[in-house]
Amino acid sequence: MIWQQLQSLAGSYPLALRGLGVTVVLSLISLVLGTLLGFGLGILRTGGNRLISSVIGAWVDLIRGTPFLVQIFLIFFILPELGIELDAFTAGIIALTNLAACFICEIVAAGIRSVPTGQVEAALASGLSRWQRMRQVVLPQAMRIVLPPLVGQYVLLIKDSSVVSAIGLTDLTRVGWLVVQRVPNGLLVFFLIGLGYFIVCYPLIMLARRLEQRMGAAHGEVQL
């Protein structure tokens, strides 16, 4: 019987690959966009403008303080009522990008705040513009603090992407739901699904660990 199930599972192989592909593509796009947006928000969050900083802070708290599933439902089911129609993939990208940006914003802001004020003063005193100070002096030093938790956050977000199956996107998790209807062995099916996520995430976990060790050894001098 287990042999039959395995054979039947083997038939679902293309579907599983497609699901894995959706998960990877969805995660990749959202992580790239979320990282860009997150760095932008993090820089603004620590910039001089109180109003901008507190608006961003409030938004980040709101997103961090509500379940991701609820956020996806709001974007996919509630926005159309306001006349904004989104397909599931776009809705998934928006929700995941927003989530990523909010977490990354806080990581980046913490990194920027960790750079000693003397560094900013030295850069100011030599006449570097605001952007040059950020790009040449602050960010390279902040990266030491930012990189390990950033990669760790990527792992969390890839796993969070499984929530998009709730709005009908055929990602890896939804493939599991579909397959288990034909092959009634939930333990086996979801073990394999879990394995799929693990294969994507494990290299990142290793990378985060290595970065952490290297940053610990580097005493503030990171070669980027």
């Binding site: 000693p116 003397g118 560094q119 003063e121 030295a122 850069a123 005193a125 030599s126 006449g127 570097l128 513009s129 040059q132 040449q136 002096v137 390279p140 030093q141 503030g220 001098e221 990171v222 070669q223 980027l224």
Partner: peptide, 25 residues
């Protein structure tokens, strides 16, 4: 401006510390 605590950029070499502002500013 020369600071009590030097405030050199730790991620840049001595030469890069000296050339950063001349190049970019």
């Amino acid at each position: 401006f020369v600071f009590q605590s030097f405030n050199l950029y730790p991620h840049k070499t001595a030469l890069e510390n000296v050339t950063l502002a001349p190049i970019h500013v």
